[in-house]
């Protein structure tokens, strides 16, 4: 069952058309990877899904359904709460770890201290940070290592109990060990959440995703089970990309 359905959307920044007549569905739970060369529209696709597109000066036509309802019919902050996003560069707020994690819940009206503590604890456990930072919750989040910062950002996105988590090349700034950490964590999270990950790293897509979509020049070339797409792609362009022709 598709939790998100994208029906014939076209996305542009001013005169620059990035996605053209684009359609795809995203299955509930599991990990969907989006691959493609730089500038093909992968990140733009993500920002369309949680309406961050308009903050960056873009706009789209066509329709995007979330749980079978047009995303534009939801209040904007509800959509962003239900569809969380983690950026390429870790962006912890320069405040304490604890406050990073209570920032959004407080906005959504949770005032109870115990409840907040619980949210902090749960999200830290889910992201495997709990044992590393439990004694230092008041430490400035920007003092964490790069990998920890990114996991904190994922934890922060989880604090508002989203259904979907969008990740825009979350590991591109990290080393192998931290990447492995995060991949393991994403696999764990995918039991509960729908995860959409944009990645440059084909082996990463192969390792963790259930479905993979290959985008080229703003169009969906192929979308299939990861296993199938990587072993016997049906489109010649997919094959070429996987073999490293487009780089």
């Amino acid at each position: 069952m598709d939790i998100i359905k994208i029906n014939n959307i076209s996305v542009s920044y001013g005169d620059n058309k990035v996605l053209k007549d684009f359609s795809m569905g995203i299955k509930k739970n599991g990990i969907t990877a989006i691959i493609g060369p730089s500038g093909c529209g992968k990140s733009t696709l993500l920002t369309s899904l949680n309406l961050m597109l308009e903050e960056n000066g873009g706009s789209f036509t066509g329709e995007i359904l979330f749980k079978d309802k047009n995303i534009l019919s939801y209040p904007k902050n509800d959509i962003r709460r239900m569809i969380g996003m983690v950026f390429q560069k870790p962006t912890p707020f320069p405040i304490s770890i604890y406050k990073n994690l209570t920032y959004a819940p407080v906005f959504y009206g949770i005032k109870d201290k115990e409840k907040l503590n619980e949210i902090v604890k749960n999200t830290l456990i889910k992201t495997g940070l709990y044992d590393e930072v439990r004694g230092n919750l008041n430490m400035l989040a920007t003092k964490l290592s790069g990998g920890q910062q990114q996991r904190l950002c994922i934890a922060r996105a989880l604090t508002v109990e989203p259904d979907v988590l969008l990740l825009d090349e979350p590991c591109s700034a990290l080393d192998i060990k931290n990447t492995a950490n995060i991949e393991e964590m994403l696999l764990e999270l995918s039991k509960e959440y729908t995860i959409v990950i944009v990645t440059h790293n084909l082996s990463q897509a192969k390792r963790i995703s259930d479905y993979t979509a290959f985008i080229l020049d703003g169009q969906l070339v192929e979308y299939d089970e990861t296993e199938k797409l990587f072993t016997s792609p049906s489109d010649i362009r997919t094959k070429q990309y996987i073999e490293g022709v487009y780089g």
């Binding site: 959509i79 996003m85 405040i95 407080v106 906005f107 950002c153």
Partner: peptide, 27 residues
Amino acid sequence: ADKDIIDSSYALGVSKFHTLFKLILPL
């Protein structure tokens, strides 16, 4: 002010008001 941080806050569905008063202005 750091644009990434502001975007991260919007991406959580947090309003401009809250972003300003709880994040940007204190910062």
